[in-house]
């Protein structure tokens, strides 16, 4: 597989001697236009990689915050087609920041895998994280996606033992997403020493960058993870910032952008401190 935007971006952060900041937002939350503005803001504020959630009615691995974000997006009329259009809009201005779509398989299956891969590639999407497609179901989407030149990023979890890890890593590309806890998004803060062990264990099995997520809530926890990992994923905490700032009785769209920008800035400085300490 040729080098993708994801490969380039992790090579860059690695050369800079720091962890990459991976930010998650839900496409279309709270609506298409605001979501596009947020998307454009993220790289300017210091995000290195963007995970873009595909809204789904039944997100089985997500906690209340991301469930609610998906429902807000769906209520505003978001669809998978519009999510692809959102990325295409973003790509008019930004050709460098990798975008990884994250979500559940059903909307893609219904869209049609072949057509989806053509359209996703054309929109400028770089990779996919599909929560409910384990390696046992690789023929569904993973293998066709790799053929189409998209990265397929797999989740490794505390239950993925050494025996199973090779199976999970086969066909994984771009980076490995280590889920720091057994649980849903937005749950408890992980035990950092266990995360360090887990990252070390993964590194024995793969050359790919390891990004760690689930339970990273602020600059401090981002810093703690950044000491060990090649990437830090922040989702729920950012989604909560968007939710709080976009309540109808609250301020205007401009304020959502300011809040997002400030929060991402804090995460960036947390990650930078981790480097100077380490």
């Amino acid at each position: 597989m040729t080098q993708t935007r994801i490969d380039h971006r992790f090579a860059k952060t690695r050369a800079e001697g720091r962890a990459a900041l991976v930010t998650f937002i839900m496409a279309g939350d709270p609506d298409f236009a605001t979501s596009l503005q947020i998307l454009k803001t993220l790289p300017k504020a210091g995000a290195d990689v963007i995970e873009l959630g595909m809204p789904f009615t039944d997100p089985m691995a997500d906690g209340p915050s991301i469930q609610a974000a998906g429902l807000r997006a769906l209520k505003s009329g978001m669809t998978l087609k519009k999510t692809l259009a959102l990325v295409a809009e973003f790509r008019r201005e930004d050709q460098a920041t990798p975008i990884v779509l994250m979500g559940y398989y059903n909307p893609i299956y219904v869209y049609g895998v072949d057509q989806f891969l053509i359209d996703a590639k054309a929109s400028g999407i770089d990779g996919l994280i599909i929560v409910d497609l384990p390696p046992e179901e690789d023929s569904e989407l993973c293998e066709p996606a790799l053929k189409a030149g998209l990265n397929f990023i797999r989740l490794a979890t505390p239950t993925t033992d050494d025996k199973r890890l090779p199976k999970v890593l086969t066909n994984t590309s771009g980076f490995v997403y280590y889920v720091s806890i057994t649980g849903i998004t937005g749950a408890a803060t992980p035990d950092y020493s266990k995360v360090a062990d887990a990252v070390a264990r993964l590194k024995r099995h793969t050359q790919l960058p390891i990004a760690v997520g689930f339970g990273v809530k602020n600059a401090q926890s981002a810093a703690a993870i950044a000491v060990h990992a090649d990437g830090v994923v922040v989702g729920t905490a950012l989604v909560d910032v968007i939710a709080a700032a976009s309540k109808p009785d609250q301020a205007q769209q401009g304020d959502v952008i300011t809040h997002v920008s400030n929060f991402v800035g804090q995460l960036v400085s947390g990650i930078q401190q981790a480097r100077s300490k380490a």
Partner: peptide, 20 residues
């Protein structure tokens, strides 16, 4: 052996649950 009845069935779960 993969849990399929024709095209139906399968094991579409998060990685955390797969070992279980």
């Amino acid at each position: 052996e993969h849990g399929h009845f024709g095209i139906f069935g399968g094991r579409f779960v998060a990685e955390t649950l797969m070992p279980l």
